[in-house]
Design a protein around this nucleic acid. Structure first.
Lengths: 168, 168
DNA sequence: CTTAAAAATTTTAGACATAAAATATTAGGG
DNA sequence: CCCTAATATTTTATGTCTAAAATTTTTAAG
């Protein structure tokens, strides 16, 4: 493996120890921790208040947002998870009566998935609570803070995608 | 299902605009996506280059950082995961010959875990690659960008912890 | 010393996640 | 029409993760 050159021009702090990447590693750790703190609390509250897991909430959110019923494949794509994963999640949500499955009239390979009336009511309550929780978590950040965070996180995401390469 | 009551008395900010938290929700989504893009690529590279999973890497990182051998309980605390989780991870790492387990001489309930020589060499290689990868992902961010991100993420983390309450 | 509480770990049951193989159906080219 | 490739889903094998129960050992109280 050859040298990985970092733009040293601006950061003497990093320049002192080449090959070290302390700064970037700390940033990565902080990003991760920040996400973890928020996500684990959302998970806990979803479980305590609604007896539901985050993956199920996310799946229902996709269904609620969509204008029409979706196939398992579309769900899998939008949620960015594997097909097999969605199969199991939908199974469990159907058992709970929150989601319904029916064969597609156009394609006998496909299943159409949508929220039941109960599922729709249930999700509306969860979504409201979720919005309040997230706003509460970010309450100390000013509008400027949030704008700056949005911008820099977008920049980081683009930078990472570039590093990942052309795939996707 | 009855109402899910959120304590409004303490949260005037939320009370002012009921049910509209677009800005915060978008920020949360972006934070999540950003972390996901980076993490999934790190996972993929760890698997492709070293045939290792992220949890195993994390566990080895804890052992490498620590000056002495650790008990399973200490590992569990530092990794912030459950006891049962660590048991299984260590089992698999011992199978691979990367980690060793021995009974604690002081407490027959406890097991002392440490990296083997092979594990230490292996981890050093992974850690170097990991540092390079992370630096590569953040390559487009200037030093100022990284400093600002660090500061705002810290602020967000503190804000979230405050919202979570006194527990912990 | 004996007993009860605490601590460290393992086990169990359930959920989630992936990749890869298997199954079923559709669609297109000859 | 027939064969093949692509598509949609399920199944299988493995790994990660938690909460809660069970096990073993230590510690402290009486």
């Amino acid at each position: 493996m050859e040298d990985h050159a970092i733009p040293l021009d601006a950061e003497t702090k990093v320049a002192e120890r080449p090959h070290d990447h302390q700064h970037e590693l700390r940033l990565w750790l902080r990003l991760f921790t920040c996400k973890e703190v928020i996500e684990s609390e959302v998970r806990r509250r979803l479980r305590d208040s609604f007896d539901v897991t985050l993956p199920r909430f996310d799946l229902m959110a996709q269904l609620d947002r969509a204008p029409k019923a979706m196939t398992l494949g579309e769900l899998s794509q939008r949620m960015m998870v594997s097909n097999g994963n969605v199969t199991g999640l939908v199974d469990r949500l159907v058992e709970q009566g929150l989601v319904s499955r029916r064969p597609s009239p156009k394609d006998r390979r496909a299943q159409l998935v949508s929220l039941t009336a109960k599922g729709r009511r249930f999700f509306a309550a969860m979504a409201r609570a979720n919005g309040d929780w997230i706003a509460e978590m970010f309450a100390d950040l000013s509008g400027d803070d949030m704008d700056t965070l949005m911008r820099l996180l977008a920049k980081a995401k683009i930078s990472a995608r570039k590093a990942i390469g052309v795939r996707r």
